[in-house]
Write a protein that binds this DNA or RNA. Structure first.
Lengths: 247, 247
DNA sequence: GACGTGCATTGATTTCGATCAACCCTTTGG
DNA sequence: CCAAAGGGTTGATCGAAATCAATGCACGTC
C-alpha cells in the first residue's frame, strides 16, 4: 500500500507546501515540533487512501498529487464533496472515524501527523489552530459555492464552472493573467467529474462535446482542454460576470 | 431596522446559548472581555439582515430565532447554503464583505461583536479560536452532507431528509428518544424549503402531499408535521439505515 | 496481430422534476 | 363585506438529464 516516492522528502523547510499548509504560519521552532511527529505516505493513482468508517489515527496534508473526498449511498450513488490538492488537509482533530472516502486520483504523497500528538500541538501552538481555522473556513466557502452549483445550475453551467475553476487555479499557480489562450489538464476522469457535479458521465461527455462544438473550448486528447477565451467560458458558468479580481 | 426585544438580554452568564456558541469554552474572565464588545440586534420575520456584498463591521451569534444563508444568481435562482439556529455564528474573522444574504425567517435576535476587537480576542484568547474551529468543522460536515443531498438524492428523499433532520434536532433539544409519535414545526415556508433542497416549491408541496397520502407523515395545518414512526421516515431519506446513535 | 479492458463518445428512449396555470384558504385592511 | 395579498395545493404539459445500449478508441498483454 505504501509506495516509494522518488523525491526523498524530509526537511520541512524545503517542503513544497511549507507556506500554504497547516504549518504555514509556524515559526522555525514550531516547525521542529511538527517535524518530530510527521511521516510520509504515498499512494498510487486510483487507490482508496481511506474508507468511510475507518478508524483514523492520523491527520495529514497532501504534498503532491490530487485526491478526492466522497460519500456513497448504499445503492452506489456517489457524490464528491471535496477535491484535495497539494496543501489541503485531511482529517479532523478530535474525530475517530473517517466520514468520507479519500481516493487518490493521481499518485499522491501525504505528510501525516499522528493524531494525539497533533491534537496536543493544536492546544500549545496557536499558529497551527489559527491556520487550520482559516483553511476550514476556506473549505466551507468552497463547499457553499458548490452547493449553489449542485442545487441550481444546469448541466452546461456545471461543466463550464468546473473547467473555469480549474483554469483559474492553474493560471494563478503558474503566472498572473495569461489573458490569451490557456490550456489546462483536467485531473479527473469523466466519471469523477460526474460525481463531483452531480451528473452522469454521459451528460458530462455530451456537454463537453457541446462546448467543443461551439468553439468555447478545444480538446487535445481527452484530458487537455484549451480555452481560447476565458471570459467567454466564464459567461457559460451562470456566475456573476464580474467574477472576482482581474489580477 | 433594529427592533425592541421583549426579554432584556444583558448578562452573558445567563445567556441561552452560553454553552453552545463561540463563547462556549470561555472562562469567566474571558467572558468579561467578550461582554465588553458585544451588543444586541433584533430583526423581524422576513427581514434581510445582511445583503451579499455588504461591508460587515461585526460578527455575531444567533441568540433566538431562525435565519437563512443564501446565494442568488443574476436570474433569480437562489440556493440556501445554511440554516442558522440559536448559537450559530455569522460572519468570518478577516473578511470585509459578506458573501451571502442572511435573512430572518422568524423574529431573530443576534449578539454582535465589533469585528476588530473580536479579531484581537481571537489571537489573545485561544478558547474562542478553538471553539470557532470546532463550529466551522461542524458546519463543513453539514455542508458536505447537504452536497450529497443536492447532487444525488431524489425529490422525495430530499423532503424526507429535511423533515428527519429537523425532527432529530428538535428531539435532541427537548428530550432523549421520544420513540413514538413526534411532532415538529417546519420553520420554513415551502419556497424556503425549495431553495434549501434545490427544488421548486411545487415539487416540495407535491412530495409533502405524497408522504402524507402514504401515512408516513401527518399534517396539522401547513407547518406542523406529525411523524408517527421516525424509522419509517428515515427509510425514505436514502441514508444508511443505521443512521447514527440510538440515543 | 488478436484480444480484453478501461475510458469516452454518441444515439434512442424514458422519466423526474420544472414550468405554466388554475384555484383554495387565511389574513388584513379599507 | 369585499378586495388584495401571501402562502399553499393540484393539474397538465414540457424538457433536461437519466437511463439503456451500442460503438470507438488507446492501452497493455498473451
Amino acid at each position: 500500500m505504501v509506495q516509494h516516492s522518488e523525491i526523498e522528502l524530509s526537511e520541512c523547510s524545503d517542503c513544497p507546501i511549507r507556506h500554504r499548509a497547516v504549518c504555514a504560519r509556524c515559526e522555525e521552532d514550531e516547525l521542529d515540533l511538527l517535524e518530530s511527529i510527521k511521516y510520509y505516505r504515498s499512494y498510487s493513482a486510483g487507490q482508496t487512501m481511506i474508507w468511510a468508517g475507518d478508524r483514523m489515527d492520523f491527520v495529514a496534508s497532501v504534498v503532491v498529487g490530487v485526491a478526492t473526498l466522497s460519500q456513497t449511498m448504499e445503492d452506489g450513488r456517489t457524490q464528491m464533496v471535496g477535491l484535495l490538492l497539494p496543501s489541503d488537509f485531511i482529517g479532523r482533530p478530535g474525530r475517530e472515524i473517517a466520514p468520507y472516502n479519500v481516493t487518490a486520483v493521481s499518485d499522491v504523497t501525504v505528510c501525516c501527523f499522528r493524531k494525539r500528538p497533533f491534537e496536543n500541538l493544536l492546544v500549545t501552538t496557536p499558529h497551527i489552530g489559527q491556520r487550520l481555522l482559516e483553511m476550514a473556513l476556506d473549505e466551507l466557502d468552497a463547499a457553499r459555492e458548490w452547493m449553489l452549483l449542485l442545487g441550481r445550475k444546469t448541466a452546461r453551467e456545471k461543466i463550464a464552472s468546473l473547467i473555469a475553476i480549474i483554469a483559474r487555479r492553474d493560471a494563478e499557480l503558474k503566472d498572473a493573467l495569461p489573458e490569451g489562450r490557456l490550456s489546462v489538464t483536467l485531473p479527473l476522469t469523466r466519471e469523477a467529474m460526474a460525481d463531483y457535479l452531480g451528473l452522469t458521465l454521459e451528460t458530462v461527455s455530451r456537454q463537453i462535446s457541446a462546448l467543443k462544438r461551439e468553439g468555447i473550448i478545444e480538446l487535445e486528447g481527452k484530458r487537455r482542454v484549451i480555452i481560447p477565451n476565458l471570459p467567454v467560458l466564464m459567461e457559460q458558468t451562470g456566475d456573476d460576470s464580474d467574477g472576482g479580481p482581474i489580477v
